[in-house]
Nucleic acid binder design. Structure first.
Lengths: 141, 141
DNA sequence: TCTGATTTGTAATGTTATTACATTGTGAAA
DNA sequence: TTTCACAATGTAATAACATTACAAATCAGA
C-alpha cells in the first residue's frame, strides 16, 4: 500500500497492475527507448527496488503488445499504436544521433519474408527488423 | 610464442591474426551460433584467458564480413558465404528447436526498406532482420 | 471463508560486454 | 639497423543486462 488510490485501474483492453502501469508510464513519457535498468532507476521513487520488478512488468506489456523490445539496443519502447492491435510485422528505424525510434510496417516485406518461410518450410515466430542509422533531423544538423 | 608455426597465415582477402583465426575456426566448426563466452571456453586450450580476446577478434571478423552477430541471441555465426562479398542486406532464420541458422537475402525486402528510408530522409546503417521459429526438420519431428 | 492462481518483494547469481592500462609484435621510414 | 608509430595482445576489474529461487502478499471465484 504505497498509494491511497483504491481503484485497480483498468484500460479498455488490458488490466494493468500497478507495476505494469508504472513501467508503461515511464516508457510513454520517455522520448525514446529505455533500458530495464534505466526504468528501474526512474521508478525507485515509486518503490521499485529490483530489476525483476521491471522485467516482470515488461514481460506482460510485451505480451500485450503495449511495448516493444529493441534487440539491437537491449532496450524497450512504448508501442506507437497500442490500439491498432492488428499490426503484423513491425520494423524499427533507430536514430543513433538522437535516439528516436520510428515504428513502421510494410506489407510487401511481410509477404516476402512469409514467402521465404513458406518455401523453406520454416514456421516463423517473432520477426525482428531494426534499421540503425541517422534520422533526417540529425542529418540536417 | 605459443605455437611453433612461423607462418603468419593469410587468407586470400584478409590477414587474420592468430586469435582471429582461432575464433573464426571455432565458429566455422560449430554447427550453430556461439556466444562469446562459449568461444572463450572452446579456446582456453589455445591460451585464451579473457573475454576481451574473443570480443576483439570478433570485432575484426565482423568488420571483415566473415562473421555475423545475431542480435536476438547475443551470439555469433560464421558467414555462410564469406567469399560472395557483395551481399547487401542479410536476413537470418533461426530455429529455436535445433539452433540452426539459415542466412538469406531478398532484394525486394532491401528495396522496400530502402524506399522507406529514402521517403523519411533516414540514412540507414546496419539493418538487422531475424526470424525466430522452427525449421522444417524440427517441425517434422 | 477457503482455496488456488497471480502478482509482488527480495536476494543472489548468471550472462554479456566494456574500460583501463601495461606489454608485445610488426612494418616502414630514417 | 635503429627508431618510431601503430596494431594486436594480455590481464584485471567493472559495467550492463537478465534470470533463478524462494517467500510473502493479493485477488478472484467456489
Amino acid at each position: 500500500m504505497t498509494t491511497p488510490t483504491p481503484t485497480p485501474m483498468a484500460t479498455p483492453l488490458h488490466d494493468l497492475t500497478r507495476n505494469q502501469s508504472l513501467v508503461l508510464g515511464a516508457l510513454t513519457r520517455a522520448e525514446g527507448p529505455l533500458s530495464a535498468y534505466t526504468i528501474l532507476d526512474l521508478l525507485r521513487e515509486e518503490g521499485f527496488r529490483a530489476p525483476l520488478q521491471v522485467y516482470r512488468a515488461l514481460d506482460k506489456l510485451l505480451a500485450a503488445g503495449l511495448v516493444h523490445r529493441l534487440e539491437t539496443l537491449n532496450a524497450f519502447v512504448a508501442c506507437a499504436r497500442p490500439h491498432c492491435h492488428a499490426h503484423g510485422l513491425i520494423a524499427f528505424a533507430i536514430c543513433e544521433g538522437c535516439g528516436q525510434v520510428e515504428e513502421f510496417s510494410d506489407e510487401v516485406v511481410r509477404e516476402r519474408l512469409g514467402a521465404w518461410s513458406a518455401a523453406k518450410g520454416f514456421k516463423a515466430g517473432k520477426t525482428t527488423i531494426e534499421i540503425r542509422g541517422q534520422c533526417a533531423n540529425c542529418l540536417a544538423a
